[in-house]
């Protein structure tokens, strides 16, 4: 087995969980997340030398994953078919105010367009800095701050969130 092949397998075994989590958050459900990650790795495998030559291979792969997601989210097919499934396990606890709030946040996140959603996930899940997010999204750090600020405002003003939690007096 070639060294590059070993390196690829080792990388996937080491980082697949974290990358899959990001992909699931981006796409909104497990199956689409697996498809996105598979698509990304299949795309990168023939170019694996470039990945390993990068300063941070995981950052390179994450950037590719995000870019492929943002690109695909612009397609009409994506807009027509994207569903944002609420995880089943939340159904069992939906009497809890906290869980209801998180469910609404999750659904509000699902209504964000691809790029702002990617920015929110990079910031709040991957704990990336403005500069790191800017490198992934291909924009300036100032733009990242603006994108995230608008995305968070949009989520807070989302209809479902507004109705539920304003009426409950917690807003």
């Amino acid at each position: 087995m070639a060294a590059a092949e070993v390196g690829f397998e080792q990388f996937v075994r080491e980082h697949a969980s974290r990358l899959l989590q990001a992909a699931v958050l981006l796409t909104g459900n497990r199956d689409r997340g697996e498809e996105l990650l598979q698509d990304t790795l299949t795309h990168l495998y023939p170019r694996w030398g470039m990945v390993t030559a990068a300063d941070s291979p995981i950052a390179y792969v994450r950037r590719t994953l995000m870019n492929r997601y943002v690109s695909s989210s612009r397609s009409p097919r994506h807009r027509d078919t994207l569903t944002w499934d609420v995880p089943e396990r939340w159904d069992r606890h939906d009497l809890s105010e906290e869980v209801a709030l998180r469910r609404d946040i999750w659904q509000a996140l699902g209504r964000l367009p691809g790029r702002p959603r990617a920015a929110v996930i990079l910031r709040f899940f991957d704990d990336q800095t403005d500069e790191e997010i800017a490198a992934v999204l291909g924009c300036r750090a100032a733009s990242v701050r603006s994108i995230i600020s608008r995305a968070m405002a949009s989520m807070r003003n989302d209809d479902s969130m507004h109705d539920t939690h304003n009426k409950a007096g917690s807003w």
């Binding site: 996937v12 969980s17 899959l20 989590q21 497990r30 598979q38 709030l101 998180r102």
Partner: peptide, 28 residues
């Protein structure tokens, strides 16, 4: 809350050995 929501959802999305094998095979 957004941060906690993302982490909670993500915690349910670990890649199993089966999924990892499929990813490797499909890349090949």
């Amino acid at each position: 809350e957004v941060r906690d929501t993302l982490r909670e959802v993500a915690s349910d999305s670990q890649a199993s050995t089966d999924v990892i094998d499929r990813l490797i095979i499909s890349a090949h």
